[in-house]
Amino acid sequence: MTASELAESLSDPEGRERMRIYRSVAIPASSVAAAIAFAMDQPANVDVAVDVDEIIVRPTAGRT
């Protein structure tokens, strides 16, 4: 998930806190953009596991 201000727009205090916890490992939009730019910038003969219609970007926080 990408970091956003969504949690702050919730009117329910418990829901707002749950969303903050859920998004604690969110990826900043600038990091997602950098990952996409990296993948797009590679030469045609290099595969960075980018499908024609999909790039998977995952947070490293919380990995086991």
Rank of each mutant, 00 (worst) to 15 (best):
E14L: 15
A34P: 01
P13G: 14
I36N: 03
D41I: 02
D53C: 02
D53P: 00
A35P: 02
S31F: 04
S4Y: 00
R58T: 12
R63S: 15
I56H: 07
A49M: 03
V52L: 05
N45A: 11
A29W: 08
P13W: 13
D53Y: 00
A37N: 07
T60P: 00
D51V: 01
R18V: 11
A61H: 13
A29K: 06
M19D: 08
S31Y: 04
A44Y: 06
R18W: 06
R20C: 10
A37Q: 07
M19R: 13
V52T: 11
Y22N: 10
P59V: 11
E8L: 10
A3R: 13
S11P: 06
R58W: 05
E54K: 04
I36W: 06
F38S: 08
D47S: 10
N45S: 10
E54F: 01
V48S: 08
V50H: 03
V57M: 02
P13A: 12
E54R: 11
D12Y: 06
D47W: 02
A39H: 06
G15T: 10
S24P: 03
Y22F: 14
A49Y: 05
E54I: 06
V46D: 04
A35M: 03
A33S: 14
A44E: 13
V32M: 05
R20M: 07
G62Q: 09
A61Q: 15
E54V: 11
I21E: 12
R20A: 12
N45R: 05
R23A: 15
T2I: 14
R20D: 09
R20G: 09
S4R: 00
N45P: 02
R18S: 13
I56V: 14
Q42L: 10
P28Y: 05
I55F: 00
D47H: 03
S9F: 13
I27V: 15
